[in-house]
Design a protein around this nucleic acid. Structure first.
Lengths: 342, 342
DNA sequence: TTGTATGCGTTATCAT
DNA sequence: ATGATAACGCATACAA
């Protein structure tokens, strides 16, 4: 009942040649040195039997598994599925399979999952959940495994990264708010242990300073996580200690939390306070008010990181670009309007 | 620079015993027949060297890869990420890795991806993208690979499935609409080639008939895909040929398409026409009007299917329940109200 | 309790 | 151009 999957041996028996001949015939590179007729017979037998190479055996022998690991914080966060599709779109046609792991942004889990990937001999890792201080992944890199970080980066280790143009994005929203007349602009910053959080905060400070905005310490509230609850907490702290006319949030989820607080307190958005996000998650156009935000190329980021990794895996001698920056766009929706007259 | 990952041989050399002894010592089952002291020395050496078993080698030898395939239509569809997390939550602690593939609901792609999974020797497959007629997967099952289908099912093949209580869900919304006073209730049905589409349509018809509702042929419009565009198309067809006071959609995305059409045509929802969905995707509570829908246990479905698959993989002799039905709940939001007085 | 030998399916190195 | 053989890392039947 349970039919065994055919192996090279089965084809060899069928065609009356040796296993190694079959192996060569089926490999496009070595197949050239085999008589055309024999190759034809072998290939014919191969698909008659429905032969599929056993990747485990290949991997064990060649030390290449054609598998890559994708580490993300949490696939239920809507910005990651498109990244995965982008990654797959380049990897799958090349014959790579992807093993996905969710770290939940916890260092301990991440370390454990790195080992899971290593046990499986992944040829490379796309890391979209890297922490700013991440000794484990540095160890992996030093061990010779190609790694590229996505969205975030580790400084000073020369690990290639594919990121969005955070600085530009912050400037775009900030400029937009300024143009609308805002002068007291607050920032709900992302977590300090993530490079995106830190980068956007820095970009905010320098751009705001350039524009000549006043920036009291209270103008920047630091979230501990990129989620709605922290967005709420920071917004409440903000409203209780300052009187901004606009809140620039480090990502959309923080902004959603901000909107909730404003609504609860009966503060009109955008009438009294404008709010902006970052990432352009799905559905932001359907909520009310639509959230003005920065669109990042999620699918593109996935593609780029995969292309980069493939290059690192297949041409280890060439040096990969240490930083690939993808463009971003400002998406204007309903959550920004001129500040109320004072 | 590139340090080799340690193998059993390295540990054997370190401890002065034979490889097979190391193998046994590290295996909890066979480890009992090894002197405690030796076991201790071996384990100590193992983690001093940072030993991790090579899963490829293990898999090749034991014919168990501790890998399962998860086939879904598209991870960017928001109902699937929670399912994945549910699956992982049971599989990962047991040492399984998950390979995810997106079929985009295309038969050709699905067939190809099934082969990808087979090449990798997955121990089982969780199939959330199965088509009603799916010879390829039936072949896999006959070949002896454990498969469970999720959300959908194949009839008559005895492939265990984990599904939501579609019939109950339809009854709940339909009953709710009825109670609110609706009598001309239309249905935007899902694709005929998916079991969920067919099931919900059947449930709609029988429940509507029981309630004594009139059901002209035009009351049911059949979508070709579960997406917003098809929701729009069907809703337009509906409005052009009938005058329903409520539209019960086979899933949320169809309902979102319906809402768009109503808004474009200046028809009030829920004032003039009520709309309902199915699945309870994220964000439905933030749009306007909030969509009344049926909540399915996405995470739970993932968990159950994984548990079921584990059982099939590890206890092939026991017969698995052919159908596991998970409960659903009606979620009332703003998109349903009594019909306008006539 | 431990060592020896073999094989999982494949590729690569030697022969022929 | 093809065959024979070893080896990848591990588990296991068999010996001792």
């Amino acid at each position: 009942m349970k039919k065994q999957t055919p192996t090279l041996r089965d084809i060899a028996r069928e065609t009356g040649v040796h296993v190694s001949t079959v192996s060569r015939a089926l490999n496009p590179v070595t197949g050239t040195s085999i008589t055309d007729d024999v190759v034809k017979r072998i290939k014919e037998a191969a698909d008659r039997l429905g032969y599929r190479p056993n990747r485990l055996a290949v991997g064990l022998r060649t030390n290449r598994t054609m598998t890559v690991g994708l580490m993300i914080p949490d696939i239920t966060n809507t910005i990651f599925p498109p990244i995965l599709r982008g990654v797959e779109s380049v990897l799958e046609p090349l014959g790579y399979a992807v093993i996905i792991v969710n770290t939940d942004s916890m260092a301990a889990r991440e370390h454990q999952l790195v080992d899971v990937l290593r046990e499986r001999g992944v040829d490379g890792i796309i890391h979209a959940a890297v922490l700013r201080d991440d000794p484990k992944i540095i160890e992996v890199v030093r061990g010779g495994t190609p790694v590229v970080t996505v969205n975030r980066r580790i400084e000073g280790e020369g690990i290639p990264s594919v990121v969005n143009d955070d600085a530009l994005g912050v400037r775009l929203v900030l400029g937009h708010l300024y143009d609308e007349g805002h002068r007291r602009i607050a920032h709900v910053a992302g977590p300090a242990n993530l490079s995106t959080g830190q980068f956007r905060r820095k970009a905010f400070k320098s751009a705001a300073t350039e524009m000549g905005l006043k920036l009291p310490a209270k103008a920047i509230q630091q979230a501990k996580r990129f989620d709605e609850a922290e967005g709420r907490r920071c917004t409440e702290a903000l409203l209780d200690s300052w009187n901004p006319t606009a809140i620039l949030c480090a990502n959309d989820r923080l902004a959603l939390g901000a909107l909730e607080v404003l609504e609860e307190r009966g503060i009109e958005c955008p009438g009294e306070i404008s709010v902006t996000g970052f990432n352009d998650m799905p559905f932001l156009d359907r909520i009310r008010p639509g959230l003005t935000t920065v669109r990042i190329e999620q699918f593109g980021v996935g593609q780029e990181s995969a292309r980069l990794l493939v290059r690192m895996m297949t041409e280890p001698e060439t040096t990969a670009p240490s930083e690939t920056i993808l463009p971003v766009r400002l998406i204007k929706r309903g959550s920004v309007a001129p500040p109320p007259a004072e």
